[in-house]
Amino acid sequence: MRRPSARRLAVPLLALGLLAPALAACSDEPADLVIYSGRNEDLVAPLLEKLEKKLDANVEVRYGDSAELAAQILEEGDKTEAALFFSQDAGALGALSKEGVLTALPQSTLDKVDAAHRGSEGDWVGVSGRVRVLAYHPGKVPTPPDSVHDLTEPAWKGRIGFAPNNASFQAFVTGMRVLEGDDATRDWLKGFKANSPKAYEKNTEILEAVDSGEVSVGLLNHYYWYEKAAEEGEDKLTAKLHFLPDGDPGGLVNVAGVGLLKGADKKEAGYAQQAADFLLGEEAQSYFAEETKEYPLSAGVAPADGLPALDSLQAPKINLGELDSLKETLTMLQEAGLV
């Protein structure tokens, strides 16, 4: 399998307001299927190698940031070599759907996933889910708050960890905008900033800071805690997780997903469809559950031990395709002084 890396060029700002990577192939051998993957190579390369064997085809994977890859696809238009887009989040898929560059998926594929976790236009589908949670240090926070809105109260000043440049945090802010409106979100960001939250580069750093007591609470995705617990033992972790109730925007369930691109020839489109169905099949869904600790979304595969059932969570009701307005969210975060 070929995995060319992305190198960046100075190109005009595109639909998502981000620089698009120039994707360079490392071989002249033609590929049967080209995948643009916004998912981390270390995370999904073993799974996509299994896909290549399953298809008995030459699969080329080009990795990059999901939003940048979506912008690249829009710039390339009909000339894109990609037949399948594997996105880290629903927002990038929603952006492509809005521009009409994704092809409708068969109903048999769509029906493998709950309607809440696929595109409303039937042109993309989620393959794994993640939940925004509150990590907390029980010695410092005996009873964690039930809403991110509580974190603007003076008692939390200097005690919160977050990753402002992380795509999942930005998707959460976008979700709040969709759920509560721009004015309410702007007010929340202002109050959050006033509490001097501590910025980290990665979710793993937030979890470590909570675990050590450097901060009392942290905003992150659920699987970081479960991965660390699997590696080190749950009894080695001080930090605990709180799944926020009552549809709080801080409990957003986002998905990684796939869409098939228009313009692929019949052979490429066939391989792309097989790839989408593979990612929704039992082998791949078990991989997400066991290896990445994400929520499997199809094939009846159960989540990893210890995770609450997805349908038991009181997540906010939201059309995930509406998480596409990243440019506006970034502007709001900049205006609030958080990025």
Rank of each mutant, 00 (worst) to 15 (best):
G139V: 02
L110I: 06
A116Y: 07
Q107P: 01
S128I: 10
A116M: 06
S108N: 07
S128L: 08
K112D: 00
G94H: 01
W124M: 10
G126M: 06
L102T: 09
A115I: 08
R118K: 15
V101D: 06
D111R: 11
A104L: 13
G122M: 05
L105Q: 01
G94F: 00
G129Y: 04
P138C: 11
G94W: 00
K140S: 13
H137Y: 12
P138D: 12
A135D: 09
P106M: 02
G122W: 05
T103F: 04
R130Q: 14
K98A: 15
W124H: 10
S108R: 13
K140V: 04
R130I: 07
K98F: 10
L134V: 08
G100I: 10
H137R: 13
R130H: 09
V133I: 15
V113D: 03
A104Y: 00
G126L: 03
E121Q: 14
V113H: 06
Y136P: 01
V133T: 15
T103M: 09
A95F: 09
V113I: 09
P106C: 07
L110R: 09
R132P: 00
D114S: 15
H117S: 01
S128N: 12
L96S: 03
D111N: 14
D123T: 13
G119M: 01
K140A: 11
G94D: 03
G139Y: 08
K98N: 12
H117G: 00
H137M: 10
S97I: 07
A116C: 01
G122Y: 07
V113L: 09
V133K: 11
A95E: 11
G100N: 13
E99Y: 13
L110C: 05
D114C: 03
T103A: 15
R118F: 05
L105G: 02
G119H: 01
K112T: 03
D114V: 04
H137A: 12
G122D: 10
D123I: 06
D111M: 05
S128K: 08
K140M: 12
D111Q: 13
H117D: 10
V125S: 02
G122L: 07
A135R: 01
G139I: 03
A115L: 05
E99C: 10
G119L: 00
P106K: 15
L134I: 14
A104H: 10
S120A: 12
G100K: 12
G129Q: 02
E99P: 04
A115K: 15
L93M: 11
W124G: 06
G100M: 12
S120K: 10
V133D: 03
L96H: 04
E99L: 14
A95G: 04
H117V: 00
G94S: 04
R118W: 09
V101I: 15
A115D: 14
V127A: 06
V131M: 10
L93I: 10
G122H: 04
S120P: 02
Q107F: 03
G122V: 08
G129M: 06
G94L: 00
L93F: 00
L93E: 06
